[in-house]
Amino acid sequence: MKIAVIADIHGNDLALEAVLADIAAQGIDDVVNLGDHFSGPLNAARTADILIARNFPSIRGNHDRWLVSKAPADMGLSDRSAHSELQPHHLDWLRTLPPTLVHRQEIFLCHGTPQDDLTYWLEDLTTEGVVHMSSRQRIEGFAAGIDFPVILCGHTHIPRAVRLADGRLIVNPGSVGCPGYDDDEPVFHKVETGSPDAAYAIISKMQQRWDVTFRRIPYDHMIISHLARQRGREDWASALASGWLDG
Rank of each mutant, 00 (worst) to 15 (best):
Q115L: 13
I170V: 15
T100W: 04
S134A: 15
Q115H: 14
C153A: 15
V131Q: 11
G112N: 07
I139T: 09
L122I: 11
R136F: 01
H111A: 00
C110W: 02
V130T: 15
E140G: 00
H132W: 12
D116F: 06
Q115S: 14
R138N: 10
G154T: 09
L164D: 04
G180R: 03
L101H: 14
D166M: 10
V150Q: 06
P114S: 12
N172V: 01
P98S: 11
E128W: 13
I158A: 04
R168V: 00
V171W: 02
S135H: 07
A144V: 13
I170R: 00
E128H: 14
A165Y: 03
D124K: 13
P173L: 06
Q115I: 03
Q137P: 00
L91A: 02
G154R: 02
G112E: 03
I170L: 14
R163T: 15
V171N: 00
D147R: 10
E123W: 08
P179D: 09
E106Y: 00
G167C: 10
P149F: 03
E128P: 02
D166E: 13
D116K: 08
T100G: 04
L91E: 08
P149A: 08
V171R: 07
P114V: 12
D147S: 11
R163F: 04
E140I: 09
P99C: 02
L91I: 07
S135I: 05
G167S: 11
I107N: 03
D147Y: 06
S175W: 08
V131D: 05
I139G: 08
H111P: 03
P114C: 11
V102N: 08
D182A: 09
D92V: 05
T119Y: 01
C178M: 13
H155Y: 08
L91R: 04
L164E: 03
D147V: 06
D182H: 14
G154Y: 08
C110V: 03
L164C: 04
I107S: 02
I158E: 00
F142M: 05
A144Y: 09
W121M: 07
R160A: 11
L164Q: 05
G112Q: 01
I146M: 12
G145E: 12
I151W: 01
R104Q: 14
S134N: 15
G129Y: 04
L94P: 10
Y120M: 15
R160Y: 12
V171M: 02
L118E: 15
C153L: 01
R138G: 02
W121L: 15
R136T: 12
L91F: 00
V162M: 11
G145H: 12
Q137I: 06
T119K: 14
R160T: 12
E123V: 12
G174N: 05
I107H: 06
V131W: 08
G141Q: 07
E106G: 04
L164P: 03
